[in-house]
Simulated scan of single mutants.
Amino acid sequence: MSIAAPDADLGVVWDLTFDDAPVALSTAHDLVAVAGAEGTTGVLEAATGAAVGTVELPGGALHAALSPDARHLAATGPTGYALWRREDGTTTVRESGAWSSAVRWADAERFAVTSGRRTLVLDSGGQELWATEPAASTVTDLAWMRGGRRLAVAAYGAVRCHERHQAAPVRTYPYIGSHLALAVAPTDRWICSGNQDASIHIWRTRDGSELTMSGYPEKVSRLAFDDSGCWLAADGAPDVTVWDFRGKGPAGTAPRSLRCHETVTALAWRPGPDGHLATGGHDGTIALWRATAGRPETRLRPARILDGDAAVTALAWAGPQLLVSAYRDGRVRAHHLPSRTAL
C-alpha cells in the first residue's frame, strides 16, 4: 500500500493505493475498512489513512462491516467470514464453505452474517448465538430492525423477519423473485428490496401492504434510505432515482432523477437530514447531489463532480464532512467536503 500527496484543489485529505481491488467500504467512529476482491481487508485511520490492521479471508471478500464502536470488523466472502479485534489485532477465520455475501452489526456486541441459505447471529467474540432456519435459496442481504431486536433476511421468494433466538420467521413478506438488495427505513415503517427483475418492491411493515415500482432498464442492486427514512435512492438505470416516502409513501408518485453516470456503481447518503447524496460511476466520476430538491419528475444536476481515473467501486461517509471513495485500480481517497448544509 502506498500513499500519494493530497490534492488540495479537490479537498483530498489522503490518497492511497491497495494491492487488491476494493469491493466494499465501511466506516465507524475513527476507522475506515477497505475490503479487497482477493480477500485482503485493510483497516485505516479515517483522519489520515494510516494503516491500523489487516484481515485476510481465504477465497476473497465480498463485504466488510465495522462495529459501531470500531472495536471489531467482520468480513464476508465466498467461503466464509472473518472477525478482527482491534484491541490486539487478532483475526478469527471461519471457512464454512458457504457463500457469505452480507454482514450487519446489530450493536457493538452482535452481528449477523449470511451463510448459504441461513443467517448466523454471533457475538463480538465470534460465538454463534443463534441461526435462522434455511431459506429457499442463498440469502442475499439482511438488515436489522427495531434497534437490533428483529432481523430481516432476503432470499428468493420473500423477505423473512426473525426475532432474537428464533430460527423460524415471525413475519414473512412474499415476492416471487430474486432479491439483490434490502433497505429498511430507519423508522422501520418500510422494507424495500431491489430485484433481479428490474424492480423495487415495497412493504409497509404495519399491515403488510405492498407496492412494486417496475420498468427499470436494469436490475436494481443498490438501495439506500437517508437518515430521516423519508427518501430512498436506487440504481437500475443511468439515472439514480430518489423516491419520496413521506406521508403515505411513494404510491402514485414519480421519483426525482439524478443523471451523471452511464452506469451507476455506488451511492451513499451524507449523514444528516439535508438530502445530500454521493453517487459513483463506472467512468470514475463521483457526483454530489442535493437529491431531495425540486419536485417529483424533476431531473436534477450535480452540485459538484469529482473526477477519478478508474471505475468507482464503493463510497462511504466517515462523518458528515469526509467522503471515502474506492476505485477498481486500487485507489482509495478521502475527500473533505464543506459543511453539512453546503456542497
Rank of each mutant, 00 (worst) to 15 (best):
1 M>P: 09
3 I>S: 04
5 A>R: 11
6 P>M: 12
12 V>E: 11
15 D>G: 10
20 D>T: 09
20 D>P: 10
23 V>R: 04
23 V>G: 03
24 A>S: 06
25 L>C: 04
28 A>I: 01
31 L>R: 06
31 L>A: 08
34 V>C: 05
37 A>M: 11
42 G>A: 07
44 L>V: 09
52 V>E: 11
54 T>R: 14
54 T>A: 10
61 A>L: 13
62 L>M: 13
62 L>P: 13
62 L>S: 10
64 A>F: 00
70 A>I: 04
71 R>E: 15
71 R>Q: 14
71 R>D: 13
72 H>I: 03
75 A>M: 00
80 G>D: 03
81 Y>K: 02
82 A>H: 00
84 W>P: 04
85 R>K: 07
87 E>N: 05
88 D>K: 08
91 T>E: 07
95 E>L: 11
97 G>H: 03
97 G>P: 08
102 A>Q: 11
103 V>C: 02
104 R>V: 08
107 D>P: 09
108 A>M: 13
108 A>V: 12
116 G>V: 08
119 T>Q: 15
120 L>R: 14
121 V>N: 02
122 L>W: 07
123 D>T: 14
126 G>Y: 00
130 W>Y: 00
130 W>P: 03
131 A>E: 15
132 T>R: 02
134 P>M: 11
142 L>R: 03
147 G>V: 06
151 L>I: 09
151 L>N: 07
155 A>S: 15
157 G>N: 00
157 G>Y: 01
160 R>D: 11
163 E>I: 04
169 P>D: 05
172 T>D: 12
179 H>V: 11
182 L>W: 06
187 T>R: 04
189 R>W: 06
195 N>D: 09
196 Q>E: 06
202 I>L: 10
207 D>A: 07
213 M>A: 12
215 G>D: 01
218 E>T: 03
218 E>N: 09
220 V>L: 02
220 V>H: 01
227 D>A: 12
231 W>D: 05
231 W>G: 11
235 D>G: 01
243 W>K: 00
243 W>V: 00
245 F>D: 06
247 G>T: 07
247 G>P: 10
248 K>I: 09
250 P>D: 01
250 P>L: 05
252 G>V: 03
253 T>S: 14
255 P>K: 06
255 P>Y: 11
256 R>Q: 05
258 L>N: 14
258 L>D: 12
259 R>Y: 14
259 R>A: 13
261 H>L: 06
262 E>R: 13
263 T>H: 13
263 T>I: 14
264 V>Y: 13
266 A>P: 08
266 A>C: 00
269 W>I: 03
270 R>S: 05
272 G>K: 02
273 P>H: 08
277 L>E: 07
281 G>T: 12
283 D>V: 03
284 G>L: 05
285 T>I: 05
285 T>A: 15
286 I>L: 08
287 A>H: 02
287 A>W: 01
288 L>W: 02
292 T>F: 04
293 A>G: 08
295 R>N: 08
298 T>H: 15
304 R>A: 15
305 I>D: 09
305 I>P: 10
307 D>V: 07
312 V>N: 05
313 T>E: 03
314 A>I: 14
314 A>E: 05
316 A>V: 01
319 G>N: 08
321 Q>P: 02
322 L>V: 15
324 V>N: 10
327 Y>V: 01
328 R>E: 12
331 R>G: 10
336 H>R: 15
337 L>Y: 00
341 T>H: 15
